[in-house]
Design a protein around this nucleic acid. Structure first.
Lengths: 202, 202
DNA sequence: TGTACATCAGTGAACGCGCGTTCACTGATGTAC
DNA sequence: TGTACATCAGTGAACGCGCGTTCACTGATGTAC
């Protein structure tokens, strides 16, 4: 038996991510994670305290990866479309991370590593909105962040849950581009009124 | 002991919904549902076969309620904003139903009652989009349905998961209205290009 | 109207199982001298 | 360089528990005659 596994942390996280991808964040057990990782059944608890500890580590890693991915899109072409698309791509390519990240009741959402990584990811979104809007008061920035985030997040979750009908096709990037263009058309048609920026809230 | 409970089905569903609201759709057991409903521990299985059966009934009921709620908004003022807002209101006021509905791995998504109710809810959205766009080819309709659905669904899920920061405030309707208005502003700024309607797909 | 019987909704004891947790342990690594 | 010892990552047997499922049952309701 090889003591001092050396990379037990990564092995456990890899096993947990595999299981989340296969069966969802629900109904995975520490013992099953251990079996998948090829370590003793008490090793995950030894390292991560409990299941929430494992999922907290996955959430922190996920937000870090998301911040990196969207950050690169921001640094490159940099438009809102490119950043939004990178968000969607992240969700689809890191399904397990994404699922855990947005199920905060399963982990410790106030863990310092989680909040730091989440703030870093949010920061990219704020920077993208500010660059897109040019001059805008804080209220408009917040509204735009909420709007853009809602759009890409809703698209990603509905796509992952297979809630769109077959007619939408099987290419998420094409579907997202179509929806993005349609958004403009809907706005022109007056579908999204309201929220006329009143006095700036700060 | 009162045999022939008379409304065991409703009691079980009510107990299950309470537990989902308190603890999430994850980690609720048939025995706990039975305890909450005040029936024997084997009653839920007797009626619903298994946990997926209970959640399937909740999902079907949820989609039916959603179709009714958005349908009323469509029949009333009828604009996309009103229908979208009714979707968000439904999600917040029927948290437990909403959570189950969009976690299809937990229930039988192909159950006839579920598909019928889901189709009815989708139909309201399609009718709203068609009315908003006036003349539009099918491709535009699909794109708009995906866009509008993504927006309101993303907003609702992010709100329920408490992913927005405090600065957004505690009034979801006001926040949604602000985001809706900001969407228009973002479109003007060219944030959502792409999806230029090519040849109609059918 | 009265009686007999079939049906079926709901019960509760019993089972075997996988789980998280505990705890005494093993043995590899690092440090002191 | 060599020896002794402390540290700590990881192990594995044992435990008690809540779970889903099974199955013989109870008793209320509906129907046949």
């Amino acid at each position: 038996v090889a003591y001092h596994h050396g990379d037990l942390r990564r092995s456990v996280l890899r096993g947990a991510l595999e299981l989340v991808a296969e069966r969802g964040a629900t109904g995975i057990s520490l013992r099953e994670i251990a079996r998948r990782a090829g370590v003793s059944h008490s090793a995950p608890a030894h390292h991560f305290v409990d299941k929430a500890g494992v999922l907290t580590a996955i959430a922190a890693e996920g937000y870090t990866l998301l911040a990196e991915t969207t950050g690169e899109a921001f640094e490159g072409d940099g438009g809102m479309a490119a950043v939004g698309l990178s968000y969607i791509r992240f969700a689809l390519s890191h399904h397990a991370h994404f699922e855990v990240m947005f199920r905060p009741e399963l982990y410790r959402r106030d863990d310092p590593k989680v909040t730091a990584a989440r703030d870093a990811a949010a920061e990219v979104l704020f920077r993208t909105v500010r660059r897109t809007l040019g001059d805008a008061d804080e209220r408009e920035v917040w509204g735009s962040v909420v709007a853009a985030w809602s759009f890409v997040h809703g698209f990603a979750t509905l796509w992952l849950n297979r809630n769109f009908y077959e007619e939408v096709g099987d290419d998420p990037v094409a579907a997202a581009a179509l929806a993005s263009g349609s958004l403009a058309r809907l706005v022109e048609a007056g579908a999204f009124p309201g929220g006329a920026p009143g006095s700036p809230s700060r």
